[in-house]
Protein backbone atom coordinates (compact mmCIF):
# COMPACT_ATOMS: atom_id res chain seq x y z
CA UNK A 1 0.00 0.00 0.00
CA UNK A 2 1.64 3.31 -1.10
CA UNK A 3 1.27 6.87 0.30
CA UNK A 4 -1.24 7.72 -2.38
CA UNK A 5 -3.70 4.97 -1.43
CA UNK A 6 -3.39 5.81 2.28
CA UNK A 7 -4.10 9.42 1.42
CA UNK A 8 -7.18 8.42 -0.62
CA UNK A 9 -8.44 6.22 2.23
CA UNK A 10 -7.96 9.08 4.71
CA UNK A 11 -9.83 11.44 2.35
CA UNK A 12 -12.68 8.93 2.07
CA UNK A 13 -12.99 8.62 5.82
CA UNK A 14 -12.88 12.38 6.36
CA UNK A 15 -15.69 12.89 3.85
CA UNK A 16 -18.11 10.54 5.62
CA UNK A 17 -21.41 12.37 5.60
CA UNK A 18 -24.18 12.38 8.15
CA UNK A 19 -26.36 10.23 5.85
CA UNK A 20 -23.71 7.53 5.65
CA UNK A 21 -23.37 7.48 9.43
CA UNK A 22 -27.11 7.09 9.84
CA UNK A 23 -27.14 4.30 7.23
CA UNK A 24 -24.32 2.49 9.02
CA UNK A 25 -26.14 2.82 12.30
CA UNK A 26 -29.32 1.46 10.72
CA UNK A 27 -27.44 -1.49 9.22
CA UNK A 28 -25.83 -2.28 12.58
CA UNK A 29 -29.14 -2.07 14.44
CA UNK A 30 -30.98 -4.16 11.79
CA UNK A 31 -28.34 -6.88 11.87
CA UNK A 32 -28.30 -6.85 15.65
CA UNK A 33 -32.09 -7.28 15.67
CA UNK A 34 -31.87 -9.98 13.02
CA UNK A 35 -29.25 -11.90 15.02
CA UNK A 36 -31.32 -11.57 18.20
CA UNK A 37 -34.32 -12.90 16.31
CA UNK A 38 -32.33 -15.83 14.91
CA UNK A 39 -30.94 -16.67 18.34
CA UNK A 40 -34.40 -16.78 19.86
CA UNK A 41 -36.53 -18.10 17.03
CA UNK A 42 -34.37 -20.99 15.77
CA UNK A 43 -33.79 -22.61 19.21
CA UNK A 44 -37.53 -22.17 19.96
CA UNK A 45 -38.40 -23.91 16.71
CA UNK A 46 -35.73 -26.56 17.36
CA UNK A 47 -37.23 -27.34 20.76
CA UNK A 48 -40.44 -28.37 18.98
CA UNK A 49 -38.51 -30.82 16.82
CA UNK A 50 -37.13 -34.12 17.95
CA UNK A 51 -34.00 -36.20 17.58
CA UNK A 52 -31.61 -35.31 14.80
CA UNK A 53 -33.91 -32.60 13.37
CA UNK A 54 -33.43 -30.60 16.59
CA UNK A 55 -29.64 -30.82 16.29
CA UNK A 56 -29.69 -29.78 12.62
CA UNK A 57 -31.88 -26.77 13.37
CA UNK A 58 -29.66 -25.68 16.27
CA UNK A 59 -26.55 -25.94 14.09
CA UNK A 60 -28.02 -23.27 11.77
CA UNK A 61 -27.79 -20.52 14.42
CA UNK A 62 -24.03 -19.73 14.30
CA UNK A 63 -23.94 -20.08 10.52
CA UNK A 64 -26.85 -17.65 10.01
CA UNK A 65 -25.30 -15.23 12.49
CA UNK A 66 -21.93 -15.31 10.73
CA UNK A 67 -23.64 -14.64 7.38
CA UNK A 68 -25.56 -11.71 8.87
CA UNK A 69 -22.39 -10.20 10.36
CA UNK A 70 -20.45 -10.67 7.13
CA UNK A 71 -23.24 -8.99 5.15
CA UNK A 72 -23.37 -6.08 7.63
CA UNK A 73 -19.58 -5.70 7.51
CA UNK A 74 -19.59 -5.48 3.69
CA UNK A 75 -22.52 -3.03 3.62
CA UNK A 76 -20.86 -0.76 6.18
CA UNK A 77 -17.50 -1.00 4.43
CA UNK A 78 -19.13 0.16 1.19
CA UNK A 79 -20.29 3.30 2.94
CA UNK A 80 -16.89 4.09 4.50
CA UNK A 81 -14.64 3.59 1.54
CA UNK A 82 -14.98 3.09 -2.16
CA UNK A 83 -14.70 -0.72 -2.48
CA UNK A 84 -11.52 -0.82 -4.56
CA UNK A 85 -8.79 -3.38 -3.97
CA UNK A 86 -6.39 -0.81 -2.47
CA UNK A 87 -9.00 0.58 -0.10
CA UNK A 88 -10.06 -2.87 1.11
CA UNK A 89 -6.44 -3.88 1.74
CA UNK A 90 -5.94 -0.62 3.62
CA UNK A 91 -8.95 -1.02 5.87
CA UNK A 92 -8.48 -4.72 6.53
CA UNK A 93 -4.74 -4.20 7.17
CA UNK A 94 -5.44 -1.44 9.68
CA UNK A 95 -8.10 -3.53 11.34
CA UNK A 96 -5.79 -6.54 11.50
CA UNK A 97 -2.98 -4.49 13.06
CA UNK A 98 -5.33 -3.01 15.67
CA UNK A 99 -6.75 -6.36 16.62
CA UNK A 100 -3.35 -8.07 16.57
CA UNK A 101 -1.83 -5.65 19.07
CA UNK A 102 -4.75 -4.61 21.23
CA UNK A 103 -6.84 -7.75 21.53
CA UNK A 104 -4.76 -10.70 20.42
CA UNK A 105 -6.65 -13.35 22.40
CA UNK A 106 -9.99 -11.82 21.55
CA UNK A 107 -9.14 -11.89 17.83
CA UNK A 108 -7.79 -15.40 18.15
CA UNK A 109 -11.08 -16.53 19.71
CA UNK A 110 -13.05 -14.84 16.93
CA UNK A 111 -10.99 -16.61 14.27
CA UNK A 112 -11.27 -19.92 16.16
CA UNK A 113 -15.04 -19.34 16.24
CA UNK A 114 -15.10 -19.15 12.45
CA UNK A 115 -12.88 -22.25 12.22
CA UNK A 116 -15.28 -24.03 14.60
CA UNK A 117 -18.10 -23.41 12.14
CA UNK A 118 -16.09 -25.08 9.41
CA UNK A 119 -14.41 -27.93 11.31
CA UNK A 120 -17.44 -28.59 13.56
CA UNK A 121 -15.63 -29.80 16.69
CA UNK A 122 -18.91 -28.96 18.47
CA UNK A 123 -22.43 -28.01 17.48
CA UNK A 124 -25.41 -26.91 19.54
CA UNK A 125 -26.88 -30.00 21.18
CA UNK A 126 -23.49 -31.80 21.39
CA UNK A 127 -22.19 -33.01 24.74
CA UNK A 128 -18.56 -31.92 25.02
CA UNK A 129 -15.76 -31.83 27.55
CA UNK A 130 -13.18 -29.06 27.43
CA UNK A 131 -10.63 -28.52 30.15
CA UNK A 132 -12.52 -30.89 32.48
CA UNK A 133 -15.86 -29.11 32.00
CA UNK A 134 -18.60 -31.40 30.64
CA UNK A 135 -21.95 -30.23 29.38
CA UNK A 136 -24.35 -29.68 26.51
CA UNK A 137 -23.50 -26.99 23.96
CA UNK A 138 -26.28 -24.43 24.17
CA UNK A 139 -25.04 -21.68 21.86
CA UNK A 140 -21.94 -20.99 19.83
CA UNK A 141 -21.11 -17.31 20.15
CA UNK A 142 -18.58 -15.28 18.18
CA UNK A 143 -15.97 -15.55 20.92
CA UNK A 144 -17.14 -18.34 23.22
CA UNK A 145 -19.10 -21.56 23.24
CA UNK A 146 -21.75 -21.69 25.95
CA UNK A 147 -22.32 -25.05 27.60
CA UNK A 148 -24.67 -26.12 30.36
CA UNK A 149 -23.24 -28.63 32.81
CA UNK A 150 -25.32 -31.42 34.42
CA UNK A 151 -25.38 -29.24 37.55
CA UNK A 152 -27.23 -26.61 35.49
CA UNK A 153 -24.26 -24.26 35.54
CA UNK A 154 -23.56 -22.25 32.41
CA UNK A 155 -19.91 -22.21 31.32
CA UNK A 156 -18.52 -19.89 28.63
CA UNK A 157 -15.46 -21.42 27.04
CA UNK A 158 -13.42 -19.32 24.56
CA UNK A 159 -13.06 -20.84 21.11
CA UNK A 160 -9.35 -20.17 21.64
CA UNK A 161 -9.14 -23.56 23.39
CA UNK A 162 -9.61 -25.11 19.96
CA UNK A 163 -5.98 -24.35 19.03
CA UNK A 164 -4.23 -26.34 21.74
CA UNK A 165 -6.76 -28.33 23.81
CA UNK A 166 -8.46 -31.67 23.23
CA UNK A 167 -12.20 -31.21 22.65
CA UNK A 168 -14.01 -34.40 23.66
CA UNK A 169 -17.36 -34.68 21.87
CA UNK A 170 -19.59 -37.49 23.15
CA UNK A 171 -22.20 -37.52 20.38
CA UNK A 172 -20.53 -35.50 17.58
CA UNK A 173 -23.64 -34.04 16.00
CA UNK A 174 -25.67 -37.24 16.20
CA UNK A 175 -28.29 -38.34 18.71
CA UNK A 176 -26.21 -41.36 19.71
CA UNK A 177 -24.30 -40.95 22.95
CA UNK A 178 -22.87 -44.00 24.63
CA UNK A 179 -23.50 -44.36 28.36
CA UNK A 180 -21.96 -46.69 30.89
CA UNK A 181 -23.34 -48.23 34.05
CA UNK A 182 -20.98 -50.08 36.38
CA UNK A 183 -21.64 -52.99 38.72
CA UNK A 184 -19.17 -54.66 41.10
CA UNK A 185 -19.97 -58.19 42.23
CA UNK A 186 -18.48 -60.59 44.71
CA UNK A 187 -16.16 -62.84 42.62
CA UNK A 188 -17.98 -66.14 43.37
CA UNK A 189 -20.86 -66.19 40.91
CA UNK A 190 -21.95 -67.41 37.48
CA UNK A 191 -20.52 -64.72 35.19
CA UNK A 192 -22.46 -65.93 32.13
CA UNK A 193 -25.74 -65.59 34.01
CA UNK A 194 -24.87 -62.08 35.21
CA UNK A 195 -23.85 -61.15 31.67
CA UNK A 196 -27.29 -62.29 30.42
CA UNK A 197 -29.14 -60.48 33.19
CA UNK A 198 -27.34 -57.19 32.60
CA UNK A 199 -27.87 -57.44 28.84
CA UNK A 200 -31.60 -57.83 29.46
CA UNK A 201 -31.55 -54.94 31.94
CA UNK A 202 -30.30 -52.71 29.14
CA UNK A 203 -32.62 -54.23 26.53
CA UNK A 204 -35.67 -53.62 28.69
CA UNK A 205 -34.87 -50.04 29.63
CA UNK A 206 -37.63 -47.80 28.23
CA UNK A 207 -34.99 -45.15 27.52
CA UNK A 208 -32.79 -47.44 25.36
CA UNK A 209 -31.96 -46.61 21.76
CA UNK A 210 -32.61 -50.16 20.64
CA UNK A 211 -31.11 -49.80 17.18
CA UNK A 212 -27.62 -49.44 18.67
CA UNK A 213 -25.61 -52.27 20.14
CA UNK A 214 -25.63 -53.24 23.81
CA UNK A 215 -22.32 -54.42 25.23
CA UNK A 216 -21.57 -55.86 28.64
CA UNK A 217 -17.87 -55.79 29.47
CA UNK A 218 -16.58 -58.05 32.24
CA UNK A 219 -13.27 -57.50 34.04
CA UNK A 220 -11.84 -59.25 37.06
CA UNK A 221 -10.58 -56.89 39.78
CA UNK A 222 -8.74 -57.67 43.05
CA UNK A 223 -11.92 -56.96 45.06
CA UNK A 224 -14.48 -58.60 42.79
CA UNK A 225 -15.83 -58.67 39.24
CA UNK A 226 -16.49 -55.46 37.41
CA UNK A 227 -19.39 -55.40 34.91
CA UNK A 228 -19.93 -52.43 32.64
CA UNK A 229 -23.05 -52.02 30.49
CA UNK A 230 -22.43 -49.89 27.42
CA UNK A 231 -25.59 -48.76 25.68
CA UNK A 232 -27.18 -45.70 24.10
CA UNK A 233 -30.15 -43.64 25.36
CA UNK A 234 -32.84 -42.46 22.97
CA UNK A 235 -31.77 -38.85 23.41
CA UNK A 236 -28.40 -37.54 24.68
CA UNK A 237 -30.32 -35.35 27.15
CA UNK A 238 -31.61 -38.53 28.82
CA UNK A 239 -28.09 -39.85 29.57
CA UNK A 240 -28.25 -39.37 33.34
CA UNK A 241 -31.80 -40.72 33.62
CA UNK A 242 -30.71 -43.67 31.46
CA UNK A 243 -27.66 -44.51 33.58
CA UNK A 244 -29.80 -44.19 36.71
CA UNK A 245 -32.43 -46.50 35.25
CA UNK A 246 -29.79 -49.08 34.27
CA UNK A 247 -28.21 -48.91 37.72
CA UNK A 248 -31.45 -49.12 39.70
CA UNK A 249 -32.95 -51.94 37.64
CA UNK A 250 -29.59 -53.69 37.31
CA UNK A 251 -29.13 -53.81 41.08
CA UNK A 252 -32.70 -55.07 41.54
CA UNK A 253 -32.27 -57.80 38.90
CA UNK A 254 -28.95 -58.94 40.40
CA UNK A 255 -30.45 -58.97 43.89
CA UNK A 256 -33.44 -61.03 42.66
CA UNK A 257 -31.00 -63.51 41.09
CA UNK A 258 -29.24 -63.90 44.45
CA UNK A 259 -26.01 -62.16 43.38
CA UNK A 260 -23.90 -60.53 46.08
CA UNK A 261 -22.46 -57.12 45.31
CA UNK A 262 -18.76 -56.59 46.06
CA UNK A 263 -18.06 -54.54 49.12
CA UNK A 264 -14.65 -53.11 49.84
CA UNK A 265 -14.00 -52.43 53.54
CA UNK A 266 -13.43 -48.78 54.30
CA UNK A 267 -9.75 -47.87 54.79
CA UNK A 268 -10.48 -46.58 58.28
CA UNK A 269 -11.82 -50.00 59.26
CA UNK A 270 -8.67 -51.75 58.02
CA UNK A 271 -6.21 -49.55 59.86
CA UNK A 272 -5.11 -50.83 63.31
Amino acid sequence: MNDDSIHRLAMNLSHLGQTALVQMLLIAVTVWLLISLIQRLVPALASRLSGRHRLHALALVPVLRLLAIAAAFLLILQRIVEPTFENLVGVLGALGLALGFAAKDYASSLIAGIVALYELPYRPGDWIEVDGIYGEVRTIGMRTVEIVTPEDTVAHIPHLKLWNQAILNANDGSQYLQCEADFYLHPHHDAAQVHRILHDVALTSPLLQIDRSINVIVREKPFGTHYRIKAYPLDPRQQFAFVTDLTVRGKAALRDAGMALASVPAIAEQSP
Partner: peptide, 9 residues
Protein backbone atom coordinates in the same frame (compact mmCIF):
# COMPACT_ATOMS: atom_id res chain seq x y z
CA UNK B 1 -45.72 -40.47 14.05
CA UNK B 2 -44.25 -38.83 17.15
CA UNK B 3 -42.47 -41.98 18.35
CA UNK B 4 -41.03 -42.58 14.87
CA UNK B 5 -39.65 -39.02 14.71
CA UNK B 6 -38.23 -39.33 18.21
CA UNK B 7 -36.21 -42.45 17.35
CA UNK B 8 -38.27 -45.03 19.25
CA UNK B 9 -38.60 -48.60 18.01
Amino acid sequence: RFLRDDGYL
